[in-house]
Design a protein around this nucleic acid. Sequence first.
DNA 1: TATTGTTATACTCTATAACTATA
DNA 2: TATAGTTATAGAGTATAACAATA
Lengths: 148, 148
Amino acid sequence: MGVDEREALLDRLFAVTALMNEDMDRGMRSLGLTPARAHVLWVVSARGPCTQRALAEELSVSARNVTGLVDALVDTGFVTRESHPSDRRATLVTPTPRGRRTADRMVREHRRFAQLLFGDLSESQLRALGSGLEQVSERLTGALRGRP
Amino acid sequence: MGVDEREALLDRLFAVTALMNEDMDRGMRSLGLTPARAHVLWVVSARGPCTQRALAEELSVSARNVTGLVDALVDTGFVTRESHPSDRRATLVTPTPRGRRTADRMVREHRRFAQLLFGDLSESQLRALGSGLEQVSERLTGALRGRP
DNA sequence: TATTGTTATACTCTATAACTATA
DNA sequence: TATAGTTATAGAGTATAACAATA
């Protein structure tokens, strides 16, 4: 007893994450972005112009993959490749005005989404959920280190 | 005030779901399965032999996609296509002995995972989290209905 | 006519390996 | 020699559309 409740809870969590993904995918699609491209635009908007190498590490993805994602974002007008001031091998992926506007909308959507999910939670509920997630993160990280 | 905390909580939730996906992907890979194929095997094991049509609807995916996933699962020995007893257009996707053993291991992994995440939560914490997720589900479902 | 599954085609994301240009 | 990025190639997941066989 107790195991079944926890498995049901896990299934409910899976259902929630599926709904979250569906909602976010729609939001991105309505902006003309796929999830992977949106992630790139999000990073270059938050951290300023990045080399593709830095993007590959930030996204935990191959350099080749970044080339393709940046190609697509250039083709659709969200970013440009600017020359690096001191390293002629590197490019700086830089948002266009359209890219910046779109990133601003993503920031607002992020806020709206946080309000949708957690808007009616009290301060103590927020803290409880936060520390619960923190604990779960640590256990998951430990499990992943355990069998890499 | 309050918005930033909720956005931070959302980011933490994203981080947890990323870790969950990473852990599950590794588990599936160690069984010789990709996530999409594992999902198919999970369904045909839980519900018994299915037509591909039924699978497409259960997974919310195109019929063409199911053809490819079942092809791959047949090639790797997890399922077979059996003829439908009363409808000669349809096939019944059926686990092989290896498929059944693998599905059993997924069931045990599911239990292990639920214990890892929630094993040390009290009954009242479980109930609180469950009802919280339920509320979030409803709000997300409402939001998705709002702009389909 | 409607339905089941397939072939044909295409797009997205992902990877490794070999290569070019530059440090 | 090492690094930044690209070309070449491949595979997985996804979709639509046209088509076959069967209901």
